[in-house]
Write a protein that binds this DNA or RNA. Structure first.
Lengths: 227, 227
DNA sequence: TTTAATATTAACTTATCGTTATTATTTTTG
DNA sequence: CAAAAATAATAACGATAAGTTAATATTAAA
């Protein structure tokens, strides 16, 4: 992934921190979004799906720990990294932070250079994890291959195996038309022989459950999944 | 993991440092290996696979930064932590160190007590990452792998070996679906061939003892443990 | 060695899923 | 624009996978 495709969300109630940290990360080429409180932070996390979220622990209204917990509940953000900003020596918040699902923490006072390289280190970690990332998001559909779960607009939809695999295949390359024969190969396996209408029926079931407009028919060829 | 199973590799060209740091860590019960230059360090890292590597930044031939980069390239050492020894104020090396893949740094002059607690803190972090903690808690179930004990809502439940291992596996990643073949590999071993209904029977027994709702069936795939 | 505990298999039941057949609808093409 | 081709929709059937129980084999314990 290119650096400029990496989004970082920064949540802190102190404008100075947002300013300085945001500036430094932007300079590095990252896309930085900021929020000044937890509620706003969760909302932005939802809409932006940043790869990295930096949360201040001490915030009014909703603190970093709770914000972190909220974010961790969202299936589409399972791959995101979360790191806390914490005053040096606040050992408690580190511990609670890890419990809440944090990946790391950065101690204040912040030294820009240290911050930037720590972020780099974290994102390096993301890269290796991402190769095996079990969670894919397309539009408002989240596919969790590891847990065999599908979420549509945050609501879980239970799919039988073949339907799951079919969706999984189509969604792996949104926009690409999968030929009927290719679908049979991938989902059914090339030894199995099934009737010509089997795919149609499964597509129909998916349309019922996921939404009609997501699955486009390309007559004479096959099907594609569109956002 | 037990303290005496933790290996620490110490790389420094100054014999005094090796002596004093090595002594202190050994006293704490860690297994300490030492190398007096980077090349030797990389070789030992490869063969010993230490959990923690402490590198001096300033070394002749190959410095700590380069040594670190070399080590980070080795896939088998991805889980290892690397920390630098750096003279106070050498801000540069901290930054470069993080870039090279370091997890922390320790400033000279070394105070044994500070060193030891820093090492402890680092290894605590490793522990949580490694999830090999002997005691795991999921909801109101506590699994003690070391003592082969299970507690449900504080009450001990005695499980036979296979059931224990099955539960232990599923609970190691709550939510993740374990395929039947994976379960066979992990719990039974990939040479053993057992009938198709064996897993079911064990699952059933677990459901009886631990609670029905904790074990979800994913038809055509396998089972998962949920809170 | 005997007994008890655990593991596996077998046989059967139940539920769910996948496929096909049928009919209707839409799209394409001559 | 009409006929043919392709796909959509439904329901019904058959296949498959999992659940259950009981019996047998294996292992560990007394």
């Amino acid at each position: 992934m290119n650096k400029k495709d990496i989004k970082i969300l920064l949540v802190d109630d102190e404008p100075d921190i947002l300013e300085i940290v945001g500036y430094n990360l932007s300079q590095e080429g990252y896309q930085v979004t900021t929020a000044s409180n937890g509620i706003e932070g969760v909302a932005l996390a939802k809409s932006e799906k940043p790869q990295l979220i930096i949360l201040d622990v001490m915030m009014p209204k909703m603190d970093g720990i709770e914000t972190c917990e909220q974010i961790r509940k969202l299936p589409e953000l399972k791959n995101s990294l979360i790191t806390f900003l914490t005053a040096r020596g606040e050992d408690y918040s580190q511990v609670a932070g890890f419990d809440a699902g944090a990946d790391d923490y950065i101690t204040k006072p912040i030294k820009p250079k240290v911050l930037v390289s720590k972020v780099k280190a974290l994102l390096r970690r993301l890269k290796t994890e991402e190769e095996s990332a079990p969670v894919v998001t397309i539009g408002d559909i989240v596919i969790n291959r590891e847990e065999y779960k599908i979420f549509v607009k945050g609501k879980e939809v239970i799919l039988p195996r073949k339907e799951f695999e079919l969706l999984s295949l189509l969604a792996s390359k949104p926009g690409k038309v999968f030929k009927r024969e290719d679908i049979l190969d991938e989902v059914w396996g090339n030894e199995v022989v099934v009737g010509g209408r089997t795919i149609d029926v499964h597509i129909r079931k998916l349309r019922e459950k996921i939404g009609n407009k997501s699955f486009k028919t390309v007559k004479g060829v096959g099907y594609k999944f569109v956002e």
